Lab assay of single mutants.
Amino acid sequence: DEEIEKWIETLLKRNISLRVNGKDLEIGSEEFKEWVEKFIKEV
């Protein structure tokens, strides 16, 4: 979905790490990609 890709790009540009389930996810890491894929499937 384009919306999500733009959102991810924005996050990448800002180099933010997300806190997911109490863990810091490094943007661009494998864990982050897995989380994004799960997130996309749920939406």
Rank of each mutant, 00 (worst) to 15 (best):
E3Q: 10
E30M: 12
E42G: 10
L12A: 03
V43A: 09
I4F: 10
I4A: 04
I16H: 02
K41G: 02
W7R: 02
L11Y: 05
L18A: 02
K13C: 14
V36G: 00
T10C: 15
K13T: 05
E2W: 13
K6Y: 09
T10N: 11
G22H: 02
E3A: 12
R19S: 05
L12R: 08
L12F: 07
E2A: 12
I40R: 08
G22Y: 07
D24G: 04
L25R: 03
D1I: 14
E26I: 12
E31P: 03
E30A: 13
K23S: 05
I8A: 03
E26R: 11
V36P: 00
E9L: 13
G28P: 06
V36L: 14
I27G: 02
R14Y: 13
E5S: 09
K33D: 03
S29F: 09
K23N: 06
E37L: 15
W35D: 00
L12K: 07
D24W: 12
K33A: 07
S17G: 05
E9M: 13
D1V: 12
L18K: 01
N15C: 15
D24N: 10
K33E: 03
G28M: 09
E26M: 10
L12W: 04
I40D: 00
K23E: 04
E30C: 09
K41E: 03
K41S: 05
V36N: 00
K6N: 07
E34H: 13
I4W: 13
E26T: 09
E31Y: 10
F32R: 00
E34L: 15
I8F: 06
K23G: 02
K13Y: 06
R19F: 04
V20E: 02
E31W: 09
E3R: 11
D1G: 11
T10G: 05
F32I: 03
K38T: 08
G28C: 12
R19P: 01
R19A: 05
E9Q: 12
S17N: 04
I16N: 04
F39C: 10
I16Q: 06
I8Y: 04
E37T: 14
K23P: 01
W35A: 04
I27C: 09
W35V: 02
L18W: 05
E34A: 15
V36M: 10
E3F: 12
D24M: 13
K23H: 08
I27D: 02
I8Q: 01
E9F: 11
F39H: 04
G28S: 04
V43D: 03
V36R: 04
I4L: 12
V20S: 04
S29T: 08
